[in-house]
Design a binder for these strands. Structure first.
Lengths: 124, 124
DNA sequence: ATAAGTGTATTAATATAATTAATACACTTA
DNA sequence: TAAGTGTATTAATTATATTAATACACTTAT
């Protein structure tokens, strides 16, 4: 299901988060479906269960899954995590924009750059 | 000139950076004027010279001062560090905006939020 | 030339923070 | 009640950041 890369310098739990997040975003995990249990995935990757637990906690924090104690962790419905992601990035955007204002950039300048970014041909 | 706060949990060099940066921004350091030497400021604060060196390196990196080897460090002209600050925040802004686009926020939505931010009454 | 000032580079010591592991707990269901 | 689930707490380990010690290189005035 997942393969760890030992040349990767990032911590294990972060790699796990990244791979699962990509799976969920790309539709590789059916929404509302159960995730593998903490222990089974830990076994599969030869890793301490707490490491997987941490990855799951992160994914839950980011809105990609939710947990029912004693039962398991489930993939969140797509519209939910999409909204969640949007509201997080929006918050950041508002912060930076405020900073830009304070640094002396004008609304007109930012509007212009904004337009440029949305003009670019889709690459994703 | 500067007073360190020992209750502050941040590293010393960071405190020094913050205080000097504020001084420069608020006009407390005449542009093009010489900064105190690494050794003298270190002595004054009872701190290792390398710690001050690091703070200066950071300030140089951020465009607030420039250095002439063997002579000393000088405060940058105001328009220079202002430009520098703007271009840095702009780069960040462009990144986040790209992310916002990828998360599905529309140009119209962002333009609206942009307008709101610039509408707010000045607090600074 | 040389001494006394400047910033800089390199390395080592130390302190702090992050990561992983060990273990015990609590809840759910068959 | 047993076997599965996630969770909390604490300790061990590893990695990173910070500070210090020391030596180097450049500039200027004597």
């Amino acid at each position: 299901m997942i393969l760890l890369d030992y040349r990767d310098k990032r911590p294990i739990y972060e790699q796990v988060v990244e791979k699962l997040e990509k799976m969920i975003i790309s539709g590789g995990m059916e929404p509302l479906t159960r995730m593998p249990s903490v222990r089974s995935l830990a076994m599969e990757l030869s890793v301490n269960p707490n490491t997987i637990q941490r990855a799951y906690a992160q994914l839950e924090q980011d809105g990609y899954l939710y947990t029912v104690s004693g039962r398991g962790s489930y993939v969140t419905a797509e519209n939910e995590w999409r909204e969640n992601k949007q509201s997080k990035v929006l918050k950041e955007w508002q912060n930076i924009t405020q900073q830009a204002k304070e640094a002396g950039l004008t609304e007109e300048q930012l509007a212009e750059y904004l337009h440029q970014i949305y003009e670019e041909t889709q690459t994703l």
